[in-house]
Structure formats: C-alpha cells, structure tokens
C-alpha cells in the first residue's frame, strides 16, 4: 500500500478555520478519536444481544447455530466499518511537522490535527484486536451451556 499524500498545511489551516467554532460539530476532530472504540462498543453490544437473546429463548442445551452466524456477520460489518475509519484517518494522519517522527509536539493547528488522527488510528488498531477477541467465543463454543 502506498502512503497517501500528506495534506498541505495551508489547506488544512483553511479547513480548520471553517470548523473553528465551538459546538460538538466543530470540535469533531476531538470526538472522532472515539470512532474505533465506538465501533468496538457497537459490535460488542450487538454480539452480547444476539448471544443473550438466542440462548434465553433456545434453552441451555441448544446449539449456537444462528447465533454464531449473527456474530460472524456483526464482526464482518464491524471490521469493514473499522477499515473505512482507518483509511479516512490515514489520509489525515502524517508524521510530526517538526522531525518527521510520531511525537506531535509542534505548536500548530495542523500538528494538533495529525496528533488527534494518530491517536484515532492507534485506537482503531486496539479496537481491531478487541473485536477479534470478542468474536472468538462464537467460534470456539458449540452450545449455550
């Protein structure tokens, strides 16, 4: 995969000014770092709900059957969503303005944008692992018991 071109600072600054208000919408760079964990959370809740309601109605001895498929579908959907989030973040993200590293300590709005995108990307990675973990029980277990 080739690295996407880095956003030009001027363009970023212009965009930034456009969003330089104070409501939740304008500060969305901040909220966006929660994207990965929110996908994980949604996936987790859906899996829990599928498992709990299937096993509550099918009884303790029942096979997982449809519940496993449900979890698999939810996992696939979550991973696709995570992939899109990751790709969008990669486009914003770049190395630090100062030393081409991952320290992000320059005093510049563009640097702040990259920092938030970097944290968001890392959180996508953690969420990816956590989603796979969550899906494992549906693969390894056979019955509701």
């Amino acid at each position: 995969m080739t690295r996407p071109a880095r956003r030009e600072p001027q363009e970023a600054a212009r965009r930034d000014r456009r969003f330089h208000g104070e409501g939740p919408r304008q500060t969305r760079g901040l909220w966006r770092i929660a994207t990965g964990p929110l996908i994980w959370g949604g996936h987790f809740l859906v899996c829990y709900w599928i498992g709990a309601s299937w096993c509550a109605h099918a009884g303790p001895g029942a096979g997982l059957g449809p519940a496993s498929w449900g979890v698999a579908a939810a996992t696939l959907a979550a991973l696709v969503a995570l992939g899109f989030a990751f790709r969008a973040l990669r486009r914003v993200r770049g190395l630090s303005l100062t030393d081409d590293d991952l320290v992000y300590e320059a005093d510049d709005p563009e640097e702040r944008r990259r920092f938030l995108a970097h944290v968001a990307t890392l959180l996508c990675v953690v969420s990816f692992v956590a989603i796979l973990y969550t899906a494992l029980p549906a693969v390894m277990l056979e019955t509701c018991r």
Binding site: F44, G51, A52, C55, A130, P137, A138, L141
Partner: peptide, 13 residues
C-alpha cells in the same frame, strides 16, 4: 448462570 457465550464475550473483553 448466564449462557457461556455471553461469558465468553466478557472474558474476551
């Protein structure tokens, strides 16, 4: 006494 599948999800997390 929750279903083992539910336990599995929470153990994973």
């Amino acid at each position: 006494g929750l279903p083992s599948l539910s336990l599995g999800f929470f153990a994973a997390a």
